[in-house]
């Protein structure tokens, strides 16, 4: 079950030539602006040209030095101030040691309230009123477990509706994720804690990962997300809910800005029926391991061989 070792595409593979080239480009850009560093082009209230160049020339997350990452976090905070007038706290909490996250969902309990969807949108700074939602709640007729019969657009006065049941689908955090394999520029990878993340500042927006995903779990920002300053969740993570821009992919990260600090994901806390269960797969006492040990579980589209870390189960009669 916990056989998965994330591949160690660690930060050790930096090329000096490439670094020199990047540094040269950055220095050139800084010279154009007449400042010492890219950020200095703007000063505290500039139009953001320096930060735009910094964003463009920024290195891959796994290849940045700690100082470069701090610079990137500071740039994200500056850009949020410029874009929303809001002071964010953008962090870079590393994966916790001896932790691999897993999720389970009790289908007997899900009533289709979509509280998880709303909480997810709000926690993860997704655009409001847009099509981009990282959880889709499918309504299925009783007697069918074929996702092709699912309807995510149900609008009832109240739920649940007799003769139907509900399957929320989000990123299944596969141990063998086809999206990671697909990405041409390695902008997405599986972290040691099992969460498949995206470097939003490295993604080129080709959408091949979303094409490869059998769960429809990856979503593209066709335009810039519509967010008002009051909508923003200010506690953010570089790989999690930092505000996204147009032209990049995003996905569920099990709210790593929360879960890496010991908190439960937002969808779980919002669920009014307690259908969602989250925990550390490496801890035999954890809730998720109890589910795996005591309930007959299944995963979506297991025949695809993606080894999801998201299980579904039902209560008995």
């Amino acid at each position: 079950m916990t056989d998965d070792d994330p591949d160690d595409s660690g930060p050790g593979a930096a090329w000096t030539t490439r670094r020199a080239l990047l540094k040269g480009a950055a220095a050139g850009a800084a010279l154009l602006g007449g400042g010492g560093t890219l950020a200095a082009i703007d000063g505290p209230t500039g139009i953001g040209l320096g930060d735009a160049l910094g964003d463009l020339l920024q290195d891959h997350y796994l290849r940045m030095t700690p100082a470069e990452i701090q610079g990137a976090l500071a740039r994200i905070e500056r850009q949020a101030r410029r874009r929303f007038g809001v002071t964010l706290d953008c962090r870079n909490d590393p994966p916790l040691a001896d932790v691999r996250f897993g999720f389970a969902l009790n289908l007997s309990k899900c009533k289709g309230t979509r509280r998880c969807v709303s909480a997810c949108v709000s926690e993860n700074n997704c655009g409001r009123g847009g099509t981009l939602q990282n959880i889709r709640v499918l309504e299925l007729p009783v007697g069918s477990r074929d996702l092709q019969d699912g309807n995510p657009y149900f609008t009832h006065q109240t739920v649940p509706v007799a003769g139907h049941w509900y399957v929320p689908v989000q990123c299944q955090q596969c141990a063998d994720p086809p999206c990671v394999q697909a990405c041409p520029v390695a902008a997405t990878w599986r972290e040691p804690d099992g969460i498949v993340v995206i470097d939003y500042d490295w993604c080129i927006g080709c959408r091949y990962c979303a094409t490869a995903c059998p769960y429809g779990a990856r979503h593209f920002n066709w335009g810039a997300p519509r967010l008002s300053p009051s909508d923003l969740t200010r506690q953010t993570h570089y790989l999690g809910n930092q505000p996204r821009e147009a032209g990049v992919m995003e996905k569920c990260t099990f709210c790593l800005q929360r879960t890496r600090r010991g908190l439960l994901p937002a969808c779980l806390e919002a669920c009014p029926t307690g259908a969602r269960i989250f925990g550390n797969l490496l801890d035999p006492e954890s809730e998720i391991r109890q589910v795996l040990a005591r309930r007959p579980v299944f995963r979506l589209k297991e025949e695809q061989g993606t080894e999801p870390r998201f299980w579904f189960f039902t209560d008995g009669p």
Binding site: K111, G112, T113, R114, R115, V117, S118, G129, G130, T131, Q133, R136, P152, Y153, F154, T155, H156, Q157, T158, V159, P160, P272, T273
Partner: peptide
């Protein structure tokens, strides 16, 4: 469980 109104459907 008492039925409740669902949150809005996705566009």
């Amino acid at each position: 469980f008492r039925p409740v109104p669902p949150d809005p459907a996705p566009p």
